[in-house]
Design a protein around this nucleic acid. Structure first.
Lengths: 246, 246
DNA sequence: GACATCAGAATGTCCTGACAAAGTCTTGAC
DNA sequence: GTCAAGACTTTGTCAGGACATTCTGATGTC
């Protein structure tokens, strides 16, 4: 039961020790080496086994608790969560998600232009109405089938967008490459019926149910760096969210 | 700029010190005493001001960073997040959410029975197919308008459900009162068209877009304690989610 | 046999101390 | 005037220790 974890630490690495530990434990959970319900040794023993202090070991465990992979109970111990919880929705883009799931995502840029901000966009980006912003409209496909229509608005001058790179990399990767540090986002998920134009693009019938998601993303200065308003084919896409009570 | 926070600590209280600090800072942010963008003193000064150690002060700040209220940058400092981010989706029920928003929620129990678990329910609750489980069907209204049809399945013997209390309190409050410690949940949000029966109950037309949410909730032993499959009127309900990059 | 009490085990909280890394700003050289 | 190097500030990481709180299980009593 109290399996001594085989974890190797590299103290010369710039990667924090607690993170090295967390990553390797996560890998073992994914691989099934640590099955659901498995009880870990107590923090002090674990720390001793790896030659770490208890706070560092705690930090590693806490990281995985926050991720929803482990559960701690005072007086009892730490257990691997008994569920195949999907990774929680993270600050990632649809492109990243699809690429990870190896769904062969492709993107077509339908529109890219500088436009004056409409009221809703201006509110979301916290700029005066009418300010010039960059507007993007893209069609995202997975495995050849159209999946989503994506509208994005960005403050002007944030980064140089090119059609080629957008189609090859996705918006979020471009922003990250431009040293934009996205920190918090506010998502709203809803549903509505497809308009005729949307239906044509998505190979659906008019009135077909679509999943809608609008999101405003802020960087670490609190500046809004992106506002997106997307629709997804409900038959092909769902959002998965893991919730952890702390 | 570097405003000395007026925070009172009660060291005799069972409430952890870091939590007392976090709560009071949060209250000041909500009240506007700490406006968006305000820079806090550095951790060491704050800790000194309150007579705390730096780790405790850090824990308080970290708590608020996780909640998306503060942002830290190494070499720079800690700032109040510059956005009116809604509180993130938490392990709460629709009833709680509505009650909080004072939307006068009402519930009608349409069905309550012990039934053998169908395959999908059995998988979600991790019981053998055919096991007796409690099934609930409820209609949730807000301000007199029908809002959602909710199907729930619970393992048998978890708690004594009564129609009256379900209609007055909501399922989650009953579970909490029965000492069920809900810890993690797995949500899936999608959309589909309303069936005829659903349309009638919800005062919508057949084929109208509905928001769907299915959720499995686990307690701190990893046992599945509830599986729910709900549909919401897309015109009346959306999910709000706040994401914080750590 | 059922229930209360107590010891043990594990995490939760809090402390002090130290060094590393990253960002900002000033200083200085060219 | 511009750019780079270095000082300074601030958070990030890590160590080791102490006591509190909570849960489990065993012990003992009625």
């Amino acid at each position: 039961m109290t399996n001594s974890l085989s974890i190797t630490l590299d103290r010369t690495s710039p990667v924090p020790l607690y993170f090295q530990v967390a990553q390797q434990i996560e890998a073992m959970i994914d691989a099934g080496t640590l099955p659901a319900g498995h009880r870990l040794d107590n923090e002090i023993q674990l720390a001793d086994q790896m030659g770490l202090s208890r706070p560092t070991m705690r930090q590693a465990i806490q990281h995985l608790v926050d991720k929803g992979l482990l559960v701690r109970k005072r007086g009892v111990g730490t257990q691997v969560v008994h569920s195949m919880v999907k990774r929680s929705v993270e600050l990632s883009s649809l492109y990243d998600d699809l690429a990870l799931a190896s769904k062969r995502p492709t993107t077509t840029v339908l529109n890219m232009a500088r436009v004056p901000a409409e009221d809703d966009v201006a509110v979301a980006l916290r700029v005066p109405p009418g300010t010039e912003v960059v507007h993007l409209q893209r069609l995202r496909c997975a495995q050849g089938e159209p999946l989503a229509i994506m509208h994005n608005w960005l403050p002007d001058g944030l980064t140089d967008l090119t059609v080629e790179r957008l189609e090859q990399r996705g918006l979020y990767e471009m922003l990250r490459a431009a040293a934009v540090h996205m920190r918090v986002a506010n998502q709203r998920i809803g549903a509505r019926a497809a308009t005729l134009a949307e239906a044509k693009l998505l190979h659906e019938r008019r009135g077909a149910p679509l999943l809608t998601m609008s999101r405003t993303t802020y960087d670490d200065n609190g500046r809004a760096v992106e506002y997106g308003s997307h629709v997804y084919r409900a038959t092909l896409y769902t959002f998965e969210i893991a919730l952890v009570e702390r």
